[in-house]
Structure formats: C-alpha cells, structure tokens
Design a protein around this nucleic acid. Structure first.
Lengths: 184, 184
DNA sequence: GCGTCCATGTAAATGGTTACATGATTAT
DNA sequence: ATAATCATGTAACCATTTACATGGACGC
C-alpha cells in the first residue's frame, strides 16, 4: 500500500494537514496496522494535489507555523475505492524484539530482561490507550479494526505475563527497585 | 534488522542453503515475525562469506541443482550476538487487508466478504499449522516465540469469528454463489 | 503438456527512512 | 535553559521487492 493511498484513507475521515496525518498513523485508529513518516507523507500529498485527488488550503495561524489543510476530492475518493479493490498484499510483520527473544539463550540475562520488560511495557501502554478510546461513534469497519487491535494487544500482554518464566527462568522475578520478592 | 543478521540467526539453528533459509522464513518458527526474499538472502550470504562470518560448502546432488550449504563461524556467532545487543527497533506491522476492513463502508459487500473470508482462512490455517508444530524440543526462547505467535493467531481468529457481524451485518450470511435470498 | 519444487543469482526499479534545513511557541 | 510540539519540505541513502535468467525432475 503506497503512501498516497494511505493519505487518501486518512483524508476520507476528515480534512487534515500532513502533520496531522502523521499523528493519525501514530495514535489514530489504524496506527497499529500501518505507518508513515514525513518523508513519505509530504511528497505523497503533493503528488495527490498534482493528480487532483486532493485540494489544499493554506491556513495562516498566529503563533504557529502555517498549515496546509488537504481535502479529498471526488476523484480522490474514486481513486481510493479503486485502490482498495485489489486483492490485499499479504501482511508483513517484523519485530526485532521478538527475534531477539527467540535467541534469548544466546544473549545475557540482563539484555533479555531489558528487551522483555520494555516490550511488555510498550504493549501494556498501547492496550490501555486503545481501551480508553471509544469506538462507539465509529462506523462498523472502524470499530472492527479497533477491537481487533485491542484483542491482539491484550493477547500479547496476557501471553507475555504468563510465560515470563520461559525467557527469564533462572533469574527469579527480580524486577524494578522494590524489595518485593514473592510478588504476585 | 538487516538481512545478514537474519541469515546468521537462521544459521545458528543449523547449516542451510539460501533456499532453505528462505523456507525458514516462510514456514519456520519465527516466520511470523520476519520475512526475506531471495533477492536479499543471496547477496547477504555472499557478504557474510566475504566477511568470514560463514563458510560455504558446495554440494553436488544427483537430479537436483547444486546446493551451497552455509555454516556459521565463531566470528559469525560473535557478530550475531553483537548485533542482538542493540536496542530493538520498534515493531512494524503492515496489513493491507485490515486497512481495507477499516474502510469497509466504502467498499461493496462482496469485496469486504472476500477480503474477510480470505484473511480469516489464512489465519486459521496458520494457527492450525503452528498448533501442530511441537516446540517442546526447542530452547526456551524458541518455545516462547512459538507460543506467542500461536496466541496472536488464535486471538485474531477468535475475534474475527465473533465480530463478523460488524463488517458484514446487512448482508446476512449469504455465502457461495447460490440463489439464496433470505439465507439464515 | 503444465505447474510446482528444487536451486542460485543479478539488475533495475521502487519506495521508504534518515538526516538536514528552519523556526516560533509552550511547558518543565 | 531545555525539551517538546507545532509545521513543512528536500535530498541522499538504504534496502527490499520484482523481474529476469536458467534448467532438470516429478506429479497431475
């Protein structure tokens, strides 16, 4: 899925600037299923403008840099629907952290613990954030995807909590600075 | 994570040819967390050979093309451990199928049903295949990752089964090509 | 016969990430 | 003071994907 289609998708949810589109990919509802950086968003938006798939309005703000708000056109909507009509490419998932955990026996314990803890913390945070976001007002597709993301994050957190011992067996619990030894 | 490190990782599990390494990424235990194609594997192996991180043995086979078996060296193991000692890059997950489902209200029902069905079937197949693979003989890290993959796949399958209605609500069950109008 | 599996590789093209460039405001 | 947020963009770099090139064996 190229950056242009991704941007069009965000713009079907409402007008936005390039900066706001990036935030969408970081915090928005499908943040977990795609990503894009400035280096791909800005050129994509300019290309979409050239193609007539979006219009642009420059907004002057006081105390803030100027903003360029993009709005999808009818041609843009059509192009978006057309792009979504092909068979989807297979999912691609890449996780260096999990790759590392796979080889935990080759790493020293501190490193494994560090990777494990950071990873679990990150997924906990995301699961919590998603759980707080209400998806009630959204359309069905959006609710479906939100729920799916949440289900995946919860599964990861739950599995990791229950199987910590597999990775960090010999070292006991030994976490954080506290004195708790037989935590539970 | 560059292709070289990925190949080294596979080679810590046993000697292999480039072709076999690719199969590892398709069917092996961390298939789900990383991928690599021939175009990145073969050049990576040649680079590793130049660097002395692997050795290569050419094997002549009858009725089969010749094979080049790669074996990791001590220097290679050291380089691998070193590569795994950095902080892992954040996960990147990209799914066109889920992106499509997110925008299901813009797509026609047939298309959504098609994407949904294919996607669920794929995840079911993978979950089943993983469940059959025993991970008992593996080291802890490998068991951990295998279990994690399985947990994720099961969560996806389970969620999708339970929430099909969100995506495909108005159309009733209505599957197959038949004439069923008020099916279910 | 046709497709798939085995097996290796190169080259071009695509496309994304990273670094650079700039700069005001606000919160710590 | 210092970092973060807001805000846009370009250019070099890097890496992967894709297409091309080759070819025998085996099953349908």
């Amino acid at each position: 899925m190229d950056a242009k289609t991704l941007c069009l998708g965000v713009l079907t949810l409402g007008d936005a600037s390039g900066y706001e589109i990036k935030k969408h990919f970081e915090e928005g509802p499908f943040a977990h299923f795609h990503a894009a950086g400035f280096g791909s968003i800005y050129p994509a938006l300019n290309a979409l403008l050239r193609e007539g798939h979006v219009t642009r309005t420059e907004t002057t703000q006081t105390g803030r840099p100027d903003k360029k708000i993009y709005k999808i056109t009818e041609a843009g909507r059509k192009a978006f629907r057309h792009a979504l009509h092909k068979d989807p490419a297979p999912d691609s998932y890449r996780s260096e952290a999990i790759f590392m955990m796979f080889f935990s026996d080759l790493l020293d314990g501190d490193q494994v613990r560090h990777v494990y803890d950071e990873y679990l913390a990150k997924y906990r945070t995301r699961a919590d954030r998603m759980a707080r976001q209400d998806s009630c007002s959204c359309q069905n597709g959006q609710r479906f995807v939100h729920g799916l993301g949440l289900a995946i994050y919860r599964a990861v957190v739950s599995y990791m909590e229950q199987n910590r011992g597999l990775l960090l067996a010999p070292h006991a619990t030994q976490q954080g600075g506290g004195a708790a030894s037989v935590a539970e």
